[in-house]
């Protein structure tokens, strides 16, 4: 038991590593605050294109979504970070993460929001248009608010996935939480910093996971 505590819950080592772990946590939060809105912007654009009146636009949007849902995000990230410089385009770690998340999480958010827009009855659009709202107004004040409400559980669960996914930025040496924990582990030959990072991720995301499973259970019970 003592050995176990020494190896995994070594408080001395954790407190030594705590400054860089805090810095890592801060970077992770910063990343999340950057990539969630980026993904949402990409998602709204894709959702609008996937529900466009023109058939070929819808097909192109669906193809785009499927393409970026088929490529593992880490593959995309490595390609942007290590591949693009060969084309004379060096976007750096932050650039690669921003572009990669825009493409990957945009596709996922796009699919969720498309389902949301599809769930709003046509009559809503027709009624809004006939009361004199413009197309953009209809979208912004009538369709999107209802669409978002209908797919709220999926949006939250996708957001949790996105925050978790920021950990892959450690692979391109962006100094977020997992990267810093591994640095600390390398220096101390002790796994406690990684355990501490895992605890931090858990505390950060647990409330959202609880909320998610309550919403999911409710949604499913409604269908049964």
């Amino acid at each position: 038991m003592d050995d176990f505590v020494q190896a995994f819950l070594n408080l001395d080592i954790i407190s030594q590593a705590s400054p860089i772990l805090w810095r890592g946590l801060w970077q992770t939060l910063l990343l999340a605050v950057m990539v969630v809105p980026l993904g949402l912007i990409g998602g709204v654009i894709l959702a609008l294109l996937s529900t466009a009146p023109l058939r070929w636009v819808r097909i192109l949007a669906a193809g785009w979504v499927d393409l970026f849902r088929a490529i593992p995000p880490l593959v995309l990230l490595v390609f942007l970070y290590a591949g693009l410089p060969f084309a004379g385009l060096d976007v750096g770690a932050w650039g690669a993460v921003a572009i990669g998340f825009f493409l990957n999480t945009g596709a996922y958010y796009g699919e969720v929001l498309r389902a949301g827009i599809d769930s709003v009855p046509r009559g809503q659009t027709e009624a809004a248009r006939s009361t004199g709202l413009s197309q953009a107004q209809t979208l912004a004040f009538v369709v999107l608010p209802q669409a978002v409400r209908n797919v709220m559980p999926d949006l939250i669960s996708n957001t949790v996935e996105v925050v978790k996914l920021t950990s892959i930025a450690s692979v391109v040496a962006l100094p977020e939480l997992l990267f810093q924990a591994r640095q600390a582990q390398n220096v101390t030959y002790n796994a406690s910093p990684i355990v501490a990072a895992a605890v931090a991720y858990f505390l950060l995301l647990w409330p959202l996971v609880r909320l998610m499973s309550r919403l999911e259970n409710k949604a499913m019970a409604g269908r049964g």
Partner: peptide, 11 residues
């Protein structure tokens, strides 16, 4: 569900 898969793998 809360832990990132990469963190579990590394751990």
């Amino acid at each position: 569900r809360a832990l990132p898969p990469l963190v579990i793998i590394v751990l």
